[in-house]
Amino acid sequence: MTTEEKIAIIDRYHSNPEQILNILVDIQFQSEAGYIDQQTAQLVAEKLDISETRVYEIVSFYAILKETPQARYVLKICDSSPCHFSGEPVVSQWLQEKLGVGENQMTQDGLFMYHGIPCVGACAQTPFVKIKGEVFPHLTPEKLEKLLADLKAGYYPELVGGESHVEA
């Protein structure tokens, strides 16, 4: 992602510090490695006229924001109790088997990573995974298999029934 593209995002929010979370999340979701690096934090700080330290504090505090490189697809699994006791562990176990990595570890090809997150308000659709802003609901092993295959093939599927809104 070029500096110009980042600046374009910041400008879209009129360099308004109130919109710092939107700015950071937008940049992160559009960046290749899925995180906010220090240079980007400096850029945002400068444009918003706040200190870099505060930008970093924010990046490190909010769970959606990342300060280290992420996999191409980060599969997020709800581990709050409503989901946790309604089949979610099946998903994480299955992912661990299929991907051969533990939680928060990247697959060798850099494509996948999974980790638990707290409730995202999709408890009625559990088990599901969430990728960026998108929920893939009511998963079964078959559906998961297909999802991974699609993602590997570079095809970002929109599964029926869930929320399927790719970020603008």
């Binding site: 220090q38 200190s51 330290t53 505060r54 930008v55 504090e57 490190s60 300060e67």
Partner: peptide
Amino acid sequence: QDVIAASQRGFDTKMSPSYGE
């Protein structure tokens, strides 16, 4: 000057300069 801040949260909260530099 604003050099050091509480990064992370919960138990992992840690005072540090930006990006732990």
